[in-house]
C-alpha cells in the first residue's frame, strides 16, 4: 500500500449510488469465486462419471455391479447401474450449464460496473480480485 501523491488524490465525492455499485461488485466477486469452486468440483465429478461409463461398457452383463448408494456399495444389475449413471450425468450436465450461465451474466455485469467505477474514480479505486 502507498499514499497517493497530492496531485493524484481523487477529490471525487462518493455518492450512495457509487457505494451501491461498489457493494454489487464485491458481492458478485464473492459469488463468482464460490461458483468457480463448485464448477471445478462438478467438472471433475463429470469426468469421473465419463470414465466410469466407459468402463461399464466393457463390463460383463451377467455380473452385478457394486454401485455406491449413500455410504454402502450395493450389488445391482449392469443395466440398472448404467441407467443410474446416466441420470447422475444428466443432473451434473444440467448443474454445470446453470453455473456457466450464471457466471457469464455475473462477469458481464462486473465489466459494466468496472467501467462505471473506474470512469468516475480512476486510480483512486481498485476493483481486482
Amino acid at each position: 500500500m502507498r499514499m497517493l501523491e497530492k496531485d493524484e488524490e481523487a477529490d471525487v465525492e462518493v455518492k450512495w449510488e457509487d457505494q451501491q455499485r461498489i457493494n454489487e461488485f464485491s458481492r458478485l466477486n464473492n459469488k463468482v469465486s464460490d461458483w468457480e469452486d463448485q464448477l471445478s468440483a462438478k467438472k471433475q465429478e463429470k469426468e469421473y462419471l465419463e470414465d466410469l461409463s466407459g468402463e461399464l461398457e466393457l463390463a460383463d452383463e451377467d455380473e452385478p455391479v457394486k454401485y455406491r448408494l449413500g455410504e454402502a456399495f450395493v450389488a445391482i444389475s449392469l443395466e440398472d447401474a448404467q441407467s443410474r449413471l446416466e441420470k447422475e450425468q444428466d443432473k451434473l450436465t444440467e448443474d454445470i450449464d446453470a453455473l456457466d450461465t450464471k457466471m457469464t451474466e455475473a462477469s458481464e455485469r462486473m465489466a459494466e460496473l468496472k467501467r462505471l467505477l473506474y470512469g468516475k474514480f480512476g486510480n483512486a479505486i481498485n476493483l481486482d480480485k
Binding site: K66, A72, F73
Partner: peptide, 11 residues
C-alpha cells in the same frame, strides 16, 4: 421390484 435379498458391502 423383488423379494430377493440385497447384497451390499458396507463400511
Amino acid at each position: 421390484s423383488s423379494e430377493e435379498p440385497i447384497s451390499v458391502q458396507y463400511e
